[in-house]
Amino acid sequence: YMEGDRKTLVRQIHDAYMKNFTMNKAKARLILTGKTSEPPFIIHDMDTFQLAERTLAAHMVKGDRSESESEVQSEPETPAPVCQELQQREAEARLFHCCQSTSVETVTELTEFAKAMPHFQMLDLNDQVTLLKYAVHEALFTLLASCMNKDGLLVARGRGFITREFLKSLRRPFSDMMEPKFQFATRFNSMDLDDSDLALFVAAIICCGDRPGLVDVPVVERLQESVIQALRHHLLANHPDDTFLFPRLLQKLADLRELVTEHAQLIQEIKTLEDTSLHPLLQEIYKDMY
């Protein structure tokens, strides 16, 4: 790759990222730092969660801000004490389904992003499937970090903010789901990457030559090498004062694999312990993963 080609690759990957992901770090940071006109609705307990379910979901379906805002003013129904525990269990299960819906939406965006990456669609179709199968959760947790701060996580396309304490207060195994992601996000966000860096990092996660079962490893490795070199040069240009950023970022790839392995085990545990279903797309991805 010559310098001109490399710059074209960086631009194409950044464009693909900005076009295909509805939320990005720049947007998320504006919301998280209170620089938008409308602050997100804060979900900090079961009542505010149930209120958000009605208002934010209604907003997404109707696309009518004024109508959903008027619903925010309404009082939540008070559950009878005898039903409270059952209602809480149901709410936790619904929260798990909300997480699944967001994951499925992001997997769809990631697939479109991969397809828009130069040379990806020229790969063997089986290899495209393999690369996405193993990459989507690593990429998902990377993108999730952009929506997190130490206190919580943006949800519903930035219209809601769910607190870390509330997620920790859920019963096991749901309470164990997000805390490791917050811990990862704190370390990851300290590197101060912007969307152009993240676009290349997500591309590097996807184009990985050591995923199990790849048919044509050398072709994937060549693509990986071009993305990794583009990432290295871009980081040096974009963060001239941080010369160790590239090796630190590569280290995060190992951290992400560990995070995904733990997450897959937890999903397995939830499937075993709880009477809950898993979206067919996520079932495909988890099946025979590690």
Binding site: V104, V107, T108, T111, E112, A114, K115, L125, N126, Q128, V129, T130, L132, K133, G213, H279, P280, L281, E284, I285, K287, D288
Partner: peptide, 21 residues
Amino acid sequence: LQEKHKILHKLLQNGNTPDEV
């Protein structure tokens, strides 16, 4: 592999949303 990952395969082929598959 494509047989075991029908939805992922379909998303790669034509970009249908998972609910449409």
